[in-house]
Simulated scan of single mutants.
Amino acid sequence: MLLDTAIHQAMGLNSITPQRELRLLPVVSQPDGGPWLEMLWQLCWHLQRLGYPVVVLDATAQESHRSPGLAQLLGARPWPGAEALNDASDDGSLAVLPAARGLAWLAGQAELGQAGALQRLQPLLRAYAAVVLYAPPEQLAPLLHGSTSVPLVMTGPGAQGMVRSYRQLKHMALHAGVRCTVAAIVAPDAQAQPRQTAEALATLARSARQHLGQHIHTTSVAAARAQDIQRLALQLLENAATLDPATPLLQPPGACATATHPDWSH
C-alpha cells in the first residue's frame, strides 16, 4: 500500500543526508501474530524513500539450501549470486535475508568475548545504508552489549502487550545495558482508545524508571497514518549506531580480535 507524505514532514526528513556508513537498527521481534511485520515493512519503505537502502536480517526465518541468508554469507562459500548484495537495489524493493542461524552464531561469538562480532556485517552489506536486526531479545542482547543503538519494541495498545514489553525491556537492560523505545501500534481495524493507550504507556515508562533505572521513550503509532510511521522511521535513524570497520562496536577488555568463520556442517 502506497502512503502519501505530508509536504512539511517530507522537507524535514529530507534534511537528513544519507551517509556511506552502515547504520544499525535493532527491532525486537514478537512471538505472536500482529501488525508488527507489516509495520516493519512500512518503516523500511519510508527509510528507503529517504534515500537509505535497507537490508533486513530476519532472525525469525531459518536459512536453508533453498533460502540462503546470513549463515551462508558468514561462511566461506556464499550462494551463487550473493555478490548482488554489493549493489543495493534502486527499484524500491526491500532486501530481506533469513538470519536465524547467522545471528545466533554471531550472538554466541559475542557471548564468548569475540570483539566486534557485528562488525562482520559491514563488509558483507557495505552497499546498504541501514541494516535492520529483527530478532528476539535473547539474540539481540549479546550483540548490542556496549552499543549506543536504541532497539525498538513494538506492542499492542492493550495492557497485556505492555506486560510483555516490560519483560523485553528488562531483558535488554539486564543483559545488554541498553534502553529501548516502545511503540504501541494501533491496527487500522482496531477501535481507537487513545486515553487507555496513553495510560498504559505511561505506566510502562514509570515501571522502567522505578525498577530498571531507565528513562525510556514511548509513542503511539496509528498503522493507517503515514505521518506516524514517518515519525517512527526518523526516530529509528536518530537512535541508530554505526557499524564502522575502524571503530569496533564490541570491544571487551582483553578480547581476542582474531576472526573465525562459522562451520555450518553440523
Results as ranks from 00 to 15, higher is better:
residue 66 R to E: 13
residue 123 P to S: 04
residue 228 D to N: 04
residue 67 S to N: 08
residue 33 G to H: 14
residue 250 L to R: 14
residue 80 P to V: 01
residue 88 A to P: 05
residue 148 T to E: 13
residue 214 Q to P: 00
residue 186 V to C: 11
residue 131 V to R: 09
residue 169 L to W: 05
residue 202 A to T: 01
residue 122 Q to F: 02
residue 57 L to T: 06
residue 210 Q to L: 14
residue 41 W to L: 08
residue 60 T to R: 14
residue 256 C to F: 06
residue 225 R to V: 03
residue 241 A to V: 03
residue 184 A to F: 14
residue 90 D to R: 13
residue 253 P to G: 05
residue 107 A to T: 08
residue 94 L to Y: 08
residue 8 H to P: 00
residue 178 V to N: 04
residue 21 E to H: 15
residue 260 T to K: 10
residue 56 V to T: 05
residue 16 I to F: 08
residue 206 R to F: 03
residue 121 L to Y: 15
residue 6 A to I: 02
residue 265 S to F: 04
residue 104 A to M: 03
residue 220 S to D: 04
residue 50 L to K: 06
residue 68 P to F: 09
residue 78 P to A: 11
residue 112 L to N: 09
residue 73 L to T: 10
residue 7 I to G: 00
residue 253 P to D: 14
residue 40 L to A: 03
residue 209 R to S: 11
residue 141 A to I: 02
residue 137 P to L: 01
residue 217 H to A: 12
residue 172 M to I: 09
residue 127 A to I: 03
residue 70 L to D: 05
residue 207 S to I: 00
residue 4 D to E: 13
residue 162 M to Y: 00
residue 256 C to H: 07
residue 157 P to M: 09
residue 24 L to Q: 09
residue 151 P to S: 13
residue 110 A to E: 06
residue 96 V to F: 02
residue 49 R to I: 00
residue 11 M to C: 06
residue 112 L to W: 00
residue 173 A to P: 00
residue 126 R to D: 12
residue 7 I to R: 15
residue 146 G to E: 03
residue 266 H to F: 06
residue 196 Q to A: 15
residue 60 T to P: 00
residue 255 A to S: 15
residue 186 V to H: 11
residue 221 V to F: 07
residue 32 D to F: 02
residue 78 P to Y: 09
residue 10 A to G: 08
residue 215 H to W: 06
residue 215 H to M: 12
residue 230 Q to T: 01
residue 102 G to P: 04
residue 237 L to V: 06
residue 264 W to M: 11
residue 89 S to I: 00
residue 241 A to R: 08
residue 250 L to I: 02
residue 24 L to V: 02
residue 76 A to S: 06
residue 232 L to I: 10
residue 207 S to V: 01
residue 170 K to C: 13
